[in-house]
Design a protein around this nucleic acid. Structure first.
Lengths: 277, 277
DNA sequence: CGACACCTTGAAGAGGTTCAAGAAATGTGG
DNA sequence: CCACATTTCTTGAACCTCTTCAAGGTGTCG
């Protein structure tokens, strides 16, 4: 009763009070980097200082000097085609990745080959934290649509975060946030039934998309029913059936991957087991 | 097939190659702090440098100077009685806690009051990482037996880790390890059946206890069937029945909370779905 | 020794899975 | 640009695992 909602977008708690300019979040071309290299006008200098996603993946309240130094963290950007892997279980860990555009899933695999989606990541979110402990990644990250990520060599991050306190704190918060997010997933998998899981999943997704300037109620799913099922610990048929049920109950409108939330309150009640009051 | 075992004790990967002296791990009185305060001979100076658990919660290869400085991280120790909470959901976050003796569970709560055990922690493991992101804890930590923890104010940790690179790296690894651990729990909850879950749980527990100098096969469970069930996403009756089944199959010997593993290979096969070959 | 918490076991029931078939979208090559 | 192959999604029916409800047994602690 008194518990703050752990499950639903711990992300949002990090968003500053003042509104973020998320216009153009879906369009990488809105980038307005001012410094162009003399050599090749088409290869823009990668710079966090001008990135409209900075509020999502970098700390706030940096001085001009600090901002300039942080620009050096992001050495390069990398494009990842839909279906391609950003990193894979067992690969050497060197960098964290901040998503600029696109949508990813991360998944782990059992010894006997079953795999389990552990999360879906979108613009401004950071991937690769799993690799720090052993210097090797322990999960796969696969793009669900054409994507671009900022490659942030972890050694550089550690170096800089020794000198810029707010960056150090930020790195710690990003890791802690991931721990709290996973706590929420564990709660979902350990104690919720199918309808509750799907409702929680949709609310979480809608909230995160909304924070990025998209509609609160209209969402395009980037993943298959099977991937949703894997994430939620359900079979794809169960996911499909539950979508159909929500549709019958006028809670959602579902057309393949296009989902419109008709009744957010109802979804919340389902998650909180108040659906039948 | 090619995947390294994520689930089973990522902890162990951090343990150095040379054997750890874990004698007396279960007995806090084996502590041999040399510096006693003049004022009160009974209040020993808290010092990591003399702690036999140092290998578990502090980085290796520190110089004498660095070791001395790290002694200051642990300001105080705190005793927690069985059943008492170390911290609680919503409480202000100030410190991380390293377990010296005893056994804890951490759990999260849904809005409607269901709760979910997210982990069991033992000597040398660090708790409280969930609190960093919002400055408030998002789970409860409850002692399952009388315990003692080292209180490590997080601001001090951040300060020192700016200056001691290996400490910085260590903090990052501890957080990353927790992320990887939770990935394993998600895998377990999302894709395993009851027998697989319990088998994985027991193997993990045995491995961690073994790393601390206890028997590989003989374990005393510190938690109830209900707590195991919560952690594994099962009802206590299912846990009990599964114990009975393992017992019938001569895989375990179970007497209440005393469990003896008779056939480790069989447990592994159950986890890997090879039980019926 | 009695109260209480914890554990075991049985039987009935529900929720989710499995298997199967068909429909709808998507992508590909001619 | 259309036809065909492929992937993805939906729906039904039988089945199975785990849950629920219930009762009795075991252990522990004041």
């Amino acid at each position: 009763m008194t518990a703050p909602p752990i499950l639903l977008s711990p992300m949002l708690k990090m968003v500053p009070a003042q509104p973020i300019d998320t216009s153009g979040l879906s369009n990488p071309l809105h980038m307005s980097d001012s410094k162009l290299t003399a050599i090749n006008p088409h290869s823009m200098k990668v710079a966090c200082s001008n990135c409209n996603l900075r509020e999502l993946c970098m700390p706030l309240g940096l001085s001009e000097q600090e901002l300039e130094r942080i620009d050096d963290v992001v050495a390069i950007r990398r494009k990842v085609k839909r279906g391609a892997t950003l990193f894979r279980n067992g690969e050497k860990f060197t960098s964290l990745f901040a998503i600029r555009t696109g949508f990813f899933k991360t998944s782990v695999v059992t010894d006997d080959g079953r795999d389990q989606v552990t999360g879906f990541q979108m613009a401004g979110e950071v991937m690769g934290l799993d690799g720090i402990v052993t210097d090797h990644h322990s999960c796969d990250a696969i793009a669900l649509e054409d994507a671009e990520v900022c490659v942030m060599p972890f050694e550089r991050i550690e170096e800089l975060s020794r000198e810029i306190n707010s960056l150090q704190r930020h790195v710690h918060k990003i890791m802690s946030r991931e721990i709290v997010r996973e706590n929420g997933v564990i709660l979902l998998l350990g104690s919720m039934r199918a309808e509750e899981r799907l409702a929680a999943f949709l609310l979480n997704l809608a909230q995160r998309l909304h924070a990025r300037g998209f509609s609160q109620s209209d969402l395009i799913l980037r993943m298959t029913r099977e991937e949703i099922g894997s994430y939620l610990g359900l079979k794809l048929e169960t996911v499909s059936r539950t979508f159909s049920k929500f549709s019958e109950d006028k809670v959602l409108e579902v057309k393949q991957r296009h989902v419109r939330i008709l009744n957010t309150e109802a979804l919340r009640d389902i998650v909180n087991n108040k659906a039948c009051l």
